[in-house]
Amino acid sequence: MNKNGLKKIIEAILFSADSPVTIKEIVSFLNVEKDSVEQVLTQLKEEYSNRGVHLVAIAGGYQFLTSPDVYNYVASFHKRGTRNSFSKAALETLAIIAYRQPVTAQEIAALRGVQSVSQILRNLLEKNLIKIAGRKDVVGRPALYKTTKTFLETFGLNSLEDLPSLEELGVEE
């Protein structure tokens, strides 16, 4: 397979997918070198950087997403209004889980200074933004919560490392 052929295939696979495709998936499916896939992706990303559609590294994979510059047009053409939104309490809860995972419900409640966060957790679980990842080895064996891939996708993060540290935010640890 020559380089141009590979580029076409990868572009088409990404175009036709509605969720992020990982390098690993492409490599194992096409049975090609990881390096050449990475090269193609970098090239495609570059080529699309000025287009109405961007190739975005998200949730550990790559996905074509419309450019934020043309958001209004796309939204109103397809008559889409509100998008994913969260209450302040839900965002706080997600922030705690994202930054300190794995955490228990009790730890989250203590940090937020409230008695119970079970309603919010249930909501986030239903939206598949968090998951139960094991149990803490203490009395009662409470569930430990972690964020999911859907969380990364929803917040446009490639990995949790994209989240700036407190230091970067100008806050003392």
Binding site: H54, Y71, A98, G156
Partner: peptide, 16 residues
């Protein structure tokens, strides 16, 4: 921070 990321992502649409 999450809210900023969310706003940015919400301005992009995926296929389909």
């Amino acid at each position: 921070v999450l809210s900023v990321f969310l706003d940015k992502r919400n301005r992009m649409w995926r296929r389909g």
